[in-house]
């Protein structure tokens, strides 16, 4: 039994390292996954037939974005390396 404990610890650490590395490398934890540096494409919103005007305005609020400013800023930062 005593010999088994170190083996278990090593195997557990190896498994955790593999899973951790995959999660970080695929961006599921840590850095967000974005296609290149582009903003993600949103899913169109819809409203329920019985939605109140307040709920409609809430749905409309989801269409507000920066108009691509963050993508342009990313370009500007990268262009400094030229």
């Amino acid at each position: 039994m005593n010999k088994l404990i170190p083996i278990l610890i090593i195997l557990g650490a190896a498994a955790a390292a593999i899973v951790g590395w995959k999660l970080v490398s695929t961006g599921q934890i840590g850095m967000p996954v974005l296609p290149g540096t582009y903003q993600a494409t949103p899913t169109p919103v819809s409203v329920a037939p019985d939605a109140t005007t307040n709920e409609m305005m809430g749905a409309l609020e989801k269409t507000v974005d920066d108009g691509g400013q963050s993508d342009l800023l990313q370009l500007e930062l990268e262009a400094k390396g030229l």
Binding site: T41, L60, K62
Partner: peptide
């Protein structure tokens, strides 16, 4: 376009 689609839905 996705935003305009949302606006049309609303």
């Amino acid at each position: 376009s996705r935003h305009l689609q949302s606006m049309t839905n609303i």
